[in-house]
């Protein structure tokens, strides 16, 4: 299909798309370029090519932001959240997709409603409650908060995958003598596993990048997440922008590589739900 044939339209279209491309890539290019420069050269000209490659920016960033510890915290937090969201979410999504309970409408509405609730609506009692229970600086407790916040999204997305499975498959399994649990775990789960993988990727990304909850609930230096320790590094400990950009690149690079490798999953998962819904 072509909307409009004329050559000029094509040229203008590509020119406009290219300008938007440059706007998008410009800050990212600055990040990469300056992560290799000494601070003095950045102050002279952030656009210039590095005169010398300062690879030790990365070493200093790694040490000053204690990425050895904080990256591990982030990875642990993301892994716990992924496991919690995928297990609890797929159970709920299955029941809601197949309308196995009478209250499926109310439950769906409740979950949708919580996605529009501001974090501040539950943050303060949660913080002071957790503080009283000694759950501040506890990675597992934070992964429970993430699970609560992200699972409505996961349920809605997984629901569409369950809906796409033909009902006959389930019925056939039941006739063959499978228990309802076997139908769910042995028949349905394997079929929707691509959906679960998509959810896992997106939930992993969200928890890796999350800021507000992480900075509030994980404050002890050995419990910080990578993003929060980057935030503290750039705010307090150094004004060496070469080092700060190196730290940023260390956090961002694995994400970008993963995103480009699996872009279809990311984009369909993050944007797809809102088009269908």
């Amino acid at each position: 299909m072509r909307l409009i044939e004329s050559r000029t339209t094509f040229v203008i279209t590509y020119a406009a798309l290219a300008i938007l491309l440059l706007i998008t890539l410009f800050p990212i290019a600055l990040l990469v370029l300056n992560s290799l420069k000494p601070a003095a050269q950045i102050v002279q000209n952030p656009l210039a090519w590095p005169e010398v490659y300062r690879w030790d920016n990365f070493v200093r960033a790694w040490n000053d932001a204690r990425f050895g510890t904080t990256m591990l915290n982030s990875a642990l937090l993301a892994a716990l959240t992924i496991v919690l969201v995928c297990t609890t979410g797929s159970l709920t999504a299955y029941v809601l997709a197949r309308r196995k309970v009478k209250s499926w409408k109310i439950v769906t509405f409740y979950l949708l409603a919580t996605t529009t609730a501001p974090i501040q609506l539950f943050l303060f009692p949660l913080y002071f409650g957790f503080a009283r229970l000694g759950l501040i600086n506890n990675v597992f407790a934070v992964s429970l908060i993430y699970t609560a916040i992200y699972s409505p999204f996961a349920v809605m997305l997984l629901r569409t995958y369950f809906l796409a499975v033909p009902k006959e498959l389930e019925e056939a399994a039941l006739i063959d003598g499978a228990t309802p649990w076997q139908v769910f775990s042995k028949v349905m789960l394997p079929i929707v596993s691509p959906g679960i993988l998509t959810v896992a990727l997106i939930i992993g990304l969200y928890s890796w990048n999350e800021f507000l909850i992480a900075t509030t609930f994980l404050q002890r230096t050995d419990r910080l997440t990578a993003v929060v320790s980057f935030f503290l590094l750039s705010g307090q400990y150094t004004s060496d922008w070469g080092e700060i950009m190196a730290a940023a690149l260390i956090i961002v690079l694995p994400v970008i590589v993963l995103f480009i490798a699996l872009q279809r999953r990311f984009i369909e998962g993050m944007a797809g739900g809102s088009v269908k819904g």
Binding site: T24, L25, I28, V227, I251, I256, F259, M270
Partner: peptide, 9 residues
């Protein structure tokens, strides 16, 4: 792409 970069960064 900007959507997958952490807001802090």
């Amino acid at each position: 792409l900007p959507m997958v970069i952490a807001t802090a960064i």
